[in-house]
Simulated scan of single mutants.
Amino acid sequence: MKSESMQKHKKEAPKSIKGAVITLSDSKYRDFLKSVNNDISGTLIKDALEEKNEVVFYSIIPDDAGLLISMINHVIETYDVDVIITTGGTGIGPRDITIEALKEIFDKEINGFGEIFRYESYKELGTGAILSRATAGVYNEKLIVSLPGSPNAVKLGLSIILTELGHLVKHLRE
């Protein structure tokens, strides 16, 4: 049962937002430089956002923390964007740097997203869900959502976050 205040907030939330998508992957970046775009997860995010929203920026970059932060700052400074969704670089391998980079810049972390993501992953995958480090947070009054690179994980993350995007953006604009 939803609270009355949450229902009111959702009614007052923007019906459409502007989003950016950044894929982090060394291999997809190398392919992208050869004019081959095999970014299934980034495409899933773009397509899902474009159903009710606008995608104003999309890029594939290598797993590089400095480049990710520079790209996020570029997007915020150059585009009228409400949310930036990243995919990839969330694992525990040595090149997985997304979470550490984002936690350095977050003004606030939205812990509930990661918690719900891991809970839903656990229901599907069992204890292997402990590997997930999906997160969300606020930086410079913009929402940033970080999803794993797996297409199935992206679908799960989108199923959690898409219905709340307008609501979250409304709170950021207050």
Rank of each mutant, 00 (worst) to 15 (best):
I72K: 03
I72W: 08
D82K: 01
P94E: 11
D64H: 11
I76Q: 08
L44Y: 09
N111W: 00
D47M: 06
E54H: 12
E115G: 01
V81Y: 07
N37G: 09
N38W: 00
V56R: 05
A65V: 00
T78A: 11
D31I: 00
S35N: 15
D96M: 04
I99Y: 05
F57Q: 09
I99L: 06
G93M: 00
M71Q: 13
S70M: 02
F113L: 04
R30A: 13
L24C: 11
A65Y: 02
N53K: 07
N53P: 04
E51W: 00
L33E: 09
R95W: 00
D26M: 01
E104D: 12
M71V: 11
I110P: 07
N111S: 13
L24G: 10
V83P: 10
E54M: 07
T43E: 10
K52M: 07
K103Q: 09
V36S: 11
N38Q: 05
K46D: 01
V83D: 09
K28V: 08
E51K: 15
G88Y: 02
I84S: 10
D80H: 12
I97P: 09
K52Y: 10
D63R: 07
E54I: 08
G66W: 00
D63K: 13
V36W: 00
F113E: 04
K46V: 14
T98S: 09
T43W: 01
I45R: 01
L33N: 12
G42N: 03
E50M: 14
N111H: 08
L68T: 09
V81I: 02
G89H: 00
I40D: 02
S41E: 01
D80W: 01
D26H: 13
K28S: 14
S27Y: 03
I84V: 15
G114Y: 02
D64S: 15
I84K: 05
L49M: 12
A101N: 05
I110T: 07
D64V: 06
G88A: 07
S25M: 06
I92L: 14
T90Y: 03
L49D: 02
T78I: 02
K46P: 02
E100Q: 14
V36C: 04
L102R: 10
V36I: 14
E104N: 15
L68Q: 03
G91Q: 03
D31C: 03
Y79I: 01
L67M: 11
G42K: 01
S41C: 05
S35Q: 11
S41T: 05
K28I: 11
D80E: 14
E100K: 14
L102I: 08
D107V: 08
S70H: 08
I40V: 15
G88N: 04
I61E: 05
R30W: 01
G42D: 08
L102P: 11
E100S: 15
G112Q: 06
D63F: 03
Y79L: 00
S25Q: 07
K108S: 13
I84F: 10
H74C: 05
E109S: 14
I97Q: 03
A65C: 01
G89V: 03
K46S: 14
T43L: 01
V36Q: 11
P62N: 10
D26S: 11
G114Q: 00
F57Y: 15
F32V: 00
I99R: 06
L102T: 06
V75I: 15
T98R: 05
K34L: 12
S25R: 02
D107S: 15
L44G: 12
K108G: 05
I99F: 04
Y29C: 12
T87E: 03
F106G: 13
V36R: 09
D26N: 15
L24Y: 02
I76E: 07
K34H: 12
K28F: 07
